[in-house]
């Protein structure tokens, strides 16, 4: 089977520091309000804790990208390796993709009046480099995987992540595990 790449997000390692978001912003010098990658706190009690678990999400480079289907000007293409690319040249800023994406990934740039999103650092990867978020994560919690490989512990969803059946995202997750607690008020 051909190689299909995706992000593996290890929420057991993530500390919610947001360095991945900013490494991405640094690399592409995005406008202040634009973030291609975002760190979301998981819903309270998802894993028995209190906003101490996080998911770092960028574009999920879906197998059936809703953005691609919704785009009237073929600004979206899916590469052989699975990366969903967006062409700023073709984009007319109609925002259809923003409405279609279940993960609210595409963002509207008020300056260029066009949409933009994560391209998994396709150019960097083509040069043999890792994406900026992968390199920038101090916890080594984001990696690029071949989604056709079996990865121990990798799951397709986390609490709060929209139903993966809609667009078949390629992002995979390692769930957080909570240690033993001996509290004073227990």
């Amino acid at each position: 089977m051909a190689k299909k790449i995706g992000f593996l997000v290890n929420s057991d390692r993530c500390i919610g520091c947001h360095a991945c978001e900013l490494a991405c912003k640094n690399e592409y010098q995005q406008e202040p309000e634009i973030r291609w990658r975002k760190v979301y706190p998981l819903k309270e009690d998802s894993f028995g804790g209190f906003a101490r678990e996080f998911a770092s999400l960028a574009c999920n480079h879906c197998e059936d990208p809703a953005c691609l289907k919704a785009c009237p000007v073929i600004a979206y293409t899916k590469r052989e390796d699975g990366i969903v690319m967006h062409s700023k040249e073709r984009c007319i800023g109609c925002k259809n993709c923003m409405l279609a994406c279940p993960y609210k990934v595409p963002e509207f740039n008020q300056k260029t009046k066009k949409v933009e999103k994560c391209h998994m650092c396709a150019a960097r990867q083509d040069r043999g480099e890792k994406p900026a978020c992968v390199v920038g994560c101090p916890m080594e919690a984001i990696t690029i995987i071949n989604v056709n490989d079996t990865i121990a512990g990798a799951e397709r969803s986390l609490p709060g992540f929209p139903n993966a059946a809609i667009t078949n995202p390629t992002t995979r997750f390692i769930k957080p595990v909570v240690g033993r607690q001996v509290r004073r008020d227990a």
């Binding site: 500390i15 804790g49 209190f50 101490r52 240690g179 033993r180 607690q181 509290r183 004073r184």
Partner: peptide, 16 residues
Amino acid sequence: VYTQTARKADYFVQTK
């Protein structure tokens, strides 16, 4: 206090 580091530990012991 139950900190983010405590969250990553195998064992959290709370003291006064």
